[in-house]
Design a protein around this nucleic acid. Structure first.
Lengths: 345, 345
DNA sequence: CTGAAAGCGCTAACAC
DNA sequence: GTGTTAGCGCTTTCAG
């Protein structure tokens, strides 16, 4: 053992234990434990005595030891991509606050969207967390099964999985993208282009499909299509090429605001284009930036705050009722019309 | 006990334990432990056998149990304010990645800058974390002493504490603010104003003092002073009042970019002012937004990436060498001259 | 209401 | 090299 025997009177390193308090208060160690357990059976007298000496010693119950024996943890693993995208920053903040309201704490796992997340999940599993929230990344079917087997609640946010075994919360990607298509067609645009996000992601898949299918219903199709993987840098690069073309699109739907704002900036600063007049740019998400007069981005709003709240609620419910079914939530959004795209009529 | 006895053959709930693996592999439980400990003394034969059955069973060592006995945790508590401010979002992302490189994971504690953080720290202490990183919030002297006593490494980022007992990492707040003052005076401004952040924060204190002292050296003083508590909303509100005054300032130094950008936006959109010509606006931090042509904010850069890296490094060093002295790091920055403020000469 | 005792899953001496 | 044993700090029966 690394430590001195507990019976030793000399000062040990590290925080005091329930044993230390018990000895000093002249009670049993279980009495100490009970004094810190809300509904437990202790006389008020003992409890006060314990609490007093505990304060003197600076004793605090060791939550790690507790979780080891109670077999549950109030730690939630949160895998989330690049916080430079305000959508994720906002989501994470809301998520951690909502989790806190249920008494949970978030353990952060930075998860590049494009990365293979299985090793990350493996690590999460090693911590015996109370639950997992996966933002924009999904479980391989093998791991999904494993979580199910060991009874670990998982909710995926902003991504649906191939299999129906894990709970998901998403915005209305298809419907939203269709509304954008409708709006752009009504605006009388000639060459409508699409800037894709990460092609392996369900969000991009759904947005692109919703967009192109609606276009098709109007007998239209994409004039251009580029892939910028949800990255602002790649969006800028593609914008420079795309906008320099002689057959430049007069409307560009970007799979998220992060890319749309990068494109809008390049269009204005480097090509002298006036968004909403010379070119229509539309995004998806409605992040904080999009509402600023500098960008005034027309976009489809995802209800990010509710997505976070729902995720925390669903997870909490799954933890409380271990054999609840997996749920799939699609949260409605709305088209927010600002100045970056030409209006119909 | 909540569980069936381990000797029971029926399927228990929950993940398999080292015991389960040991029984199936026909070795002792310690052999299993050793097989998962890098430098341990096991024959390759045993190790392979163990690893094989472990994989079959889906066994993973329980990190919680491990940390209970090894008396150390690779979990780092990170208290950080509002992620809507890109400075913090970037800092958190870098921080969690740098921590991961050292083998640590971040446990997230949302900490409103204005809030009294002692209860939050108390909770952090209950988790027996390996270390604490406090961004823009500081320990009360009582808790600082306690951390010292129990040997818990703490580093404060972007805030200095009154007492010298905890390690700190800050940018050059005084020097940076002085450079801004120098620049504004040289630019020939008549009425120089200051928009304060949170008055209780050391960052605001140092920036304001560095700014006004430099002004004083030039025989100048503040024409106006408002307090917006590092909030974009409050910055907007104050901007509306300030810019409507007949004696409106012709230069405004905001204690961070988050406020400066809000002010800049209002000045342009609501007052028709051209930043850099009609009014000079300067920020502090140099967040991602400031470099965009839409804002082109003149600002003093804080080396956020290095701040994160240093914080992770210092913490790691403190964890490795428990009785190292507290360090105080001041990272240099640089004035980034863009278009939002009139140039000298 | 209270203490003694048995573990949660694991690591680290300690013998052999 | 390997198994046995004693805990880490705590919760939870189980007697009394």
């Amino acid at each position: 053992m690394a430590r001195q025997p507990t019976s030793d009177a000399i000062a040990r390193p590290g925080p005091p234990t329930a044993h230390d308090v018990a000895r000093l208060a002249g009670v049993s160690q279980s009495a100490v434990s009970r004094s810190f357990t809300p509904g437990a059976s202790v006389s008020e007298k003992t409890r006060q005595k314990v609490l007093k000496t505990a304060k003197e010693l600076g004793y605090r119950p060791n939550l790690i030891a507790r979780s080891l024996i109670t077999q549950r943890s109030n730690l939630i693993g949160v895998a989330i991509p690049h916080l430079g995208n305000p959508f994720y920053a906002t989501l994470l903040e809301a998520l951690s606050e909502d989790l806190a309201e249920h008494g949970y704490r978030a353990m952060l796992f930075p998860a590049p969207m494009s990365a293979f997340v299985d090793p990350l999940i493996e690590e999460m599993l090693s911590f015996r967390l109370g639950g997992l929230i996966l933002v924009s990344s999904s479980l391989s079917s093998g791991l999904a099964e494993e979580c199910l087997r060991i009874g670990l609640p998982v909710v995926q946010v902003n991504r649906v999985s191939s299999r129906g075994t894990v709970s998901t919360i998403v915005g209305d990607n298809r419907g939203g993208a269709a509304q954008v298509a409708e709006f752009l067609v009504a605006g009388g645009h000639e060459r409508i282009a699409y800037m894709a996000g990460l092609e392996a992601s369900s969000t991009n898949h759904d947005r692109e499909e919703g967009f192109t299918e609606c276009l098709a219903r109007h007998g239209r199709s994409l004039s251009h299509r580029v892939v910028a993987n949800y990255s602002a840098e790649q969006a800028r690069d593609h914008a420079r090429i795309l906008l320099a073309r002689p057959d430049r699109p007069d409307a560009l739907f970007c799979a998220n605001d992060h890319m749309a704002i990068a494109v809008l900036s390049v269009a204005r600063a480097e090509f002298g284009l006036v968004p909403g007049r010379d070119i229509s740019i539309v995004g998806f998400d409605d992040t904080r930036l999009s509402a600023m007069p500098e960008f005034s981005l027309t976009t489809f709003r995802q209800p990010v705050i509710e997505m976070a709240r729902d995720a925390a609620d669903v997870l909490h419910r799954m933890i409380s009722a271990p054999d609840a079914e997996a749920t799939r939530t699609v949260l409605p959004g709305e088209l927010v019309i600002r100045g970056s795209a030409r209006l119909p009529g």
